[in-house]
Amino acid sequence: MTGVRPGSAGDRLRRPVPVGVGAVAAALLVAFVAGVFLGWPTAALGLALTGALLAVAVVVGQLRGPVAQELVWPDERHPGDAPVATAAAAAVATPVRRRWVLGGLGGLGIGALAGVGLLAWSGRDGGPVTAWRRGVHLVTAEGQRIRATDVPVGGFGTVWPEGSVRADLSAVVLVRLATQEAEPPTVLDWVVGDRIVAYSKICTHAGCPVGLYQEDTDSLFCPCHQATFDAARGAVPTFGPASRPLPQLPLGVDDDGFLVATDGFATPIGPVRG
């Protein structure tokens, strides 16, 4: 090809540079930077930057050469003909390459096996540990001990082991049942006054905090995936993706009428592990 290629540097030189729009772009950019330092509101900053970028786009659009022409070439093949791009295809299909691929896959496999072995060998513990022990008092988020007689219907959203307020995995929901007395499979020895029960707050589905207590059905409800537990019947799941009950905290009253754990959780809290 002779002369100036469309869109080449030489071609572009002959086009008028859109000075006006360029100036707008520069001005808006300066405004944006100044605005950041002057503490302009977000909307002003955003609009200035958007404007600057759009102006840049216009400048680039003006400057660029003619739209590249479509190249069209005949597809001369008939079914079964030798392919056009055989050279490239052949280059890829050489045995050397295959060996590399197989070698790579083999390496990956060995690596994965070693990883699995290492992980399995590193041993496992007995699940998450909570701060609940025999004789640990239940306290509110403010650290106040709780008198059994003070637990309102619907109960306290979240209570903690004394000394470990906000220890994530030890969170417990304390409920005074609204519609009925607790019945099996609730462990009745761990219920105070027939209606006060405490369960781990960590959802047995995937570990979200069980958030809601519905008084009309005495059910505990997890907002993450709608798991529902029957608080009057040992918090067995009644709907949704959780397969196991929320573990029940053995509950008792000390000599002064304060709620206290009579033991730690009997079953591991939180989701089932693989």
Partner: peptide, 10 residues
């Protein structure tokens, strides 16, 4: 026909 634009231009 086979149709494409070369990226080289612009």
């Amino acid at each position: 026909w086979l149709v494409a634009v070369p990226t080289g231009v612009g």
